[in-house]
Each structure stands twice: as structure tokens, then as C-alpha cells.
């Protein structure tokens, strides 16, 4: 008797769970299933910190459904916001929150899918591993121009910065430099990836890059004693933090919506974590 009821229970629970799986929205079971039957192109441009996540997401989606094409370009946050606003791309990424002016001008909808920070980076062999905020300001304004003055070798400091369209620059300039001057003789590179590559090749270089991009090839510099790790960014100890946004003009179309849903799905958020950023979910 007991055995029989147990058996019924097992079968019943099996049936219920089966029913549950079947009736569950497809996007929850497998976020890629949402793309089934869809075809067309999603154009993405803008923020360069986003690119590794975009590429990985595109790879997953295009492998599951080759009918969907996802094109990814960089350019910087400013370019992403303008291009999506002008209707040139479907999704414009930005490494800073779009300003109120931008949101109202273009009717943007923002989707923040990761948390990131901006860290000062130097070559791994560089002895300087920590700076104060005032030292940082003096370095980036060109007042300190030799590593010796901050405990490094007797070599000129090679400054690297980003162009005005960069959200990373905007965040760094506002939150780390207090809108202080950035020396106009600094080399200008076009993306987070380019910054990392440049610094990893220049023993006397200093620049700033998305925390998610940091790996062994560069060494992150602590700011006022706080190391720019993801844990310290989340806890709020490290002040130069920001969100990574994807923006659409008005409500996203079905393809763009499916793409954004994928970013927020467990699989998408796992990609976000895997690429070094902090998922929002």
C-alpha cells in the first residue's frame, strides 16, 4: 500500500514536473530557443568594453541559429549612443549612462546588464602598484612626468588616453580625476582592448581600462589604497565604478529584444561573469 502510493507520488511528481517544463516560457528553459524561427540582422556598435561579451553572445546565438546575423562594431560610447539615436544601428552600447539630454533627444531605452569599474593600469614589470588620487591627477595632467617621483625607475611616464567619444574616459575623468585636466600630449588609443594591448607592450606606460578587461598582461594600480578588483567595485569601496549599458531607440524590435533577453538570461549573465564583469542578476 505504502509502496503503491509512493509509486503514484513519484509518477505524479514526474508528470507535474514534465508539465511544468513544457508549459514554462521557452526563454527560461533555453534562452537560445527564443531565436527559433527568427532571421535577420542585429547591428551593434559603440562601447568597446562590451565587445568581448557581445562577441561571445553573438557566437552562441549564431551557432544556435545561423539565420540570425549579428554585426559588432566599436567606436566608443558616444558613437554607440549617436548611432542608435540616428537609427544607424539597432543596439548602441555605452560604458556610461546616457545623459538626460541624450535620452530625451533620441528617446533611448537603457538596459544595464553588467557592473564594471575603470582602473588605472601599468606594465606588469612596473614597480608602481599604488597611487593616491592627487598623484594620479598630477600624472594625467602632465605635472608628474617621471616614474622616479612616484617610486619607479628614472624613466619618462608615457601617458595613454582615449578619445572624447569614450565612456571609459568620461567615467575615469569624472570619478578618478575629478574632471581634472588630461594632458594633450598623451597618446590616444581607440578602445579598451587597444589600451590593454598598448600598456602591456610599454614598460613605462600608464593608462586606464575597464576592470573586466584586466588580465596578467597588465597590472592594476590601487587607488588611495583600494585595489580595483570586482569585489571592491561591488562593495562600493572602489569609487570608479559604472554600469555597462545597451541602448535602443524606443522599444527594441523583436530581434534586439531577444538579444537583450539573452544577455539577461542565466546563460547571458554567465558570459558576463566569464568575461570579467559583474552580472546584474
Amino acid at each position: 500500500m505504502l509502496y503503491k502510493s509512493l509509486k503514484t507520488l513519484v509518477i505524479l511528481s514526474f508528470l507535474i514536473s514534465l508539465l511544468f517544463f513544457v508549459s514554462m516560457p521557452a526563454s527560461l528553459a533555453d534562452p537560445l530557443a527564443a531565436f527559433e524561427g527568427m532571421k535577420g540582422e542585429i547591428k551593434i556598435s559603440g562601447g568597446t568594453a562590451h565587445i568581448p561579451v557581445m562577441k561571445a553572445a553573438a557566437k552562441a546565438i549564431m551557432t544556435a541559429n545561423p539565420e540570425v546575423r549579428i554585426s559588432i562594431a566599436g567606436g566608443g560610447s558616444g558613437v554607440g549612443i549617436k548611432q542608435v539615436g540616428e537609427g544607424l544601428v539597432d543596439i548602441g552600447n555605452s560604458g556610461r549612462q546616457p545623459t538626460e539630454g541624450e535620452v530625451s533627444k533620441y528617446g533611448l531605452k537603457m538596459f544595464k546588464w553588467a557592473i564594471d569599474g575603470v582602473a588605472v593600469v601599468a606594465h606588469p614589470q612596473n614597480g608602481v602598484k599604488a597611487l593616491t588620487e592627487s598623484q594620479l591627477k598630477e600624472i594625467f595632467s602632465g605635472k608628474i612626468s617621471n616614474w622616479q617621483r612616484i617610486g619607479g625607475p628614472d624613466k619618462a611616464i608615457n601617458l595613454y588616453t582615449r578619445d572624447a567619444a569614450s565612456g571609459t574616459r568620461e567615467v575615469f575623468w569624472t570619478k578618478a580625476l575629478g574632471k581634472g585636466e588630461i594632458f594633450d600630449k598623451a597618446n590616444v588609443v581607440v578602445s579598451n582592448g587597444a589600451m590593454k594591448a598598448a600598456i602591456s607592450n610599454d614598460p613605462y606606460g600608464i593608462g586606464y581600462v575597464s576592470v573586466g578587461h584586466i588580465d596578467d598582461s597588465v597590472s592594476a594600480v590601487a587607488l588611495d589604497g583600494v585595489a580595483p578588483t570586482m569585489e571592491r567595485v561591488v562593495s562600493g569601496d572602489y569609487p570608479v565604478a559604472r554600469g555597462l549599458f545597451s541602448n535602443t531607440k524606443g522599444d527594441p524590435g523583436p530581434l534586439a529584444q531577444a538579444f537583450l533577453d539573452f544577455l539577461f538570461s542565466p546563460v547571458g549573465q554567465a558570459i558576463v561573469r566569464d568575461r570579467g564583469f559583474i552580472p546584474v542578476k
Binding site: V79, D163, D184, K185, A186, N187, V188, V190
Partner: peptide, 24 residues
Amino acid sequence: NAVAFPDHVFDSARTLTAHIALII
């Protein structure tokens, strides 16, 4: 690609062509 006026040949500098490519 530095935006400053170059002082000597070891300075970083930007040309008109590179400027067009950078400012999209």
C-alpha cells in the same frame, strides 16, 4: 594620435587623415 602640437619628432602626433578615422 595625441592632439597637442608636436614639439619634436619623438612626440606623439595626429594627422588629418587619422583624425577623420578617429572621430566617427
